[in-house]
Lab assay of single mutants.
Amino acid sequence: ENVVSAPMPGKVLRVLVRVGDRVRVGQGLLVLEAMKMENEIPSPRDGVVKRILVKEGEIVDTGQPKIELG
């Protein structure tokens, strides 16, 4: 899985990584606000952040790609 998608609709509060960052499985990639709760979205695997496809403040839909890992 190279693309991390939104598990639920919500607002991107914070992006916790930058392009080029090495990430580990379970590491937080971003914080999504859904139903007035903050949810940290974890990396599904070890890898390197290739692209960030969302911006802080953006509203995302379920299944929308957010971060691409290499």
Score class of each variant (00 low, 15 high):
Q27A: 05
V23F: 02
V12E: 01
G20K: 03
I67R: 01
V3A: 07
I67T: 02
V49P: 01
V60Y: 05
V23I: 08
T62N: 09
L16N: 05
V15L: 12
M8D: 00
E58A: 08
R45G: 07
T62A: 15
I41W: 05
P44H: 09
Q64K: 06
L32P: 00
G57R: 02
L29I: 08
I52F: 00
Q27H: 05
M37Q: 13
L53P: 00
I52W: 00
A34L: 10
A34C: 14
L16W: 00
V60F: 03
I59N: 11
S5F: 14
K50Q: 10
V19F: 03
D21I: 10
G20D: 05
D46Y: 07
P65F: 06
G28M: 11
M35R: 10
I67C: 06
E58F: 05
D46T: 09
V49G: 00
D21G: 03
I52L: 06
E1P: 13
R45A: 11
A6E: 04
K11D: 03
K50S: 10
A34R: 07
L32K: 00
D46R: 07
V48C: 11
M8T: 09
P65N: 08
K50H: 10
G70H: 14
L16M: 09
R45I: 15
L16D: 03
V15N: 04
K11Y: 07
E56M: 09
G70K: 12
V15Q: 03
V31T: 06
V48M: 09
D61A: 14
I52Q: 01
R51K: 12
N39R: 14
A34W: 15
S43A: 11
S5H: 12
G10P: 02
K36T: 11
T62V: 13
P7L: 12
L13C: 09
G26F: 05
R22Q: 12
V49D: 02
Q64P: 02
K55Q: 11
L32R: 00
N39A: 12
R14D: 07
S5G: 08
R51C: 09
E56S: 08
V15A: 00
E38Y: 08
E38F: 09
Q64S: 08
G10Q: 05
S43I: 02
V31H: 02
S43H: 02
P65R: 08
V48R: 08
M8P: 04
Q27I: 06
V23R: 00
D46Q: 07
P7S: 13
E33N: 04
K55R: 12
Q27G: 04
D46A: 11
G63M: 08
G28N: 10
L16C: 11
M8K: 07
V4H: 04
E1H: 13
V17T: 02
V60N: 02
I41G: 01
P44N: 05
K55T: 12
T62H: 09
P7V: 11
N2E: 11
L16P: 02
E56V: 14
N2Q: 11
Q27N: 04
R45D: 05
P44A: 04
P7K: 13
L16F: 03
G20R: 03
N39F: 15
V25Q: 13
K11H: 04
G26T: 03
K66L: 15
L29W: 00
K36C: 15
G20N: 07
G20C: 11
G28R: 07
L16G: 02
D61P: 06
E1I: 14
L16T: 04
P9R: 12
P7Q: 12
N39P: 03
R22H: 14
E33I: 10
E38R: 08
V17S: 00
M35N: 15
S43D: 02
V19Y: 03
P9A: 12
V15S: 01
Q27T: 09
V49R: 01
L30I: 13
L13N: 06
I67K: 01
G20P: 00
E56R: 07
V48D: 04
G26W: 06
R14H: 09
G28S: 12
V15H: 02
S5L: 13
G26I: 05
Q64F: 07
E68D: 05
M8E: 05
L29K: 00
I67V: 10
E56W: 06
N2C: 15
R45Q: 10
G26Y: 05
E40S: 09
D46I: 06
R22L: 13
A34I: 14
M35C: 14
G70R: 13
N39T: 14
D61L: 13
E40P: 07
M37T: 12
K66H: 15
E38Q: 11
V4P: 04
M8S: 09
P42M: 12
V54S: 00
A6P: 04
E56N: 07
S5Q: 09
D46M: 07
P7M: 12
G70T: 14
E40H: 10
R14A: 09
E58L: 04
A34Y: 15
K50A: 10
E58P: 02
I52R: 00
G63P: 03
G47W: 00
V54L: 03
I59A: 09
V49T: 02
N2H: 14
L69V: 09
K36E: 14
S5V: 14
M8F: 15
K36L: 13
L32M: 11
E1R: 11
E56Q: 10
E68P: 03
V49E: 02
R22N: 11
L29F: 00
P65I: 11
T62D: 07
G20A: 05
G26E: 03
V23M: 01
V17N: 00
G10T: 04
V23Q: 01
I52Y: 00
R14N: 07
V17K: 00
E56P: 12
G63Y: 08
V25I: 13
V17Q: 01
I59G: 05
V17C: 07
P42N: 10
S43P: 01
E68G: 05
P42E: 08
V4C: 09
V12H: 02
A6I: 09
L29A: 01
G28T: 15
G70V: 15
G70N: 12
E33Q: 09
L29N: 01
S5P: 07
M8L: 09
V19Q: 08
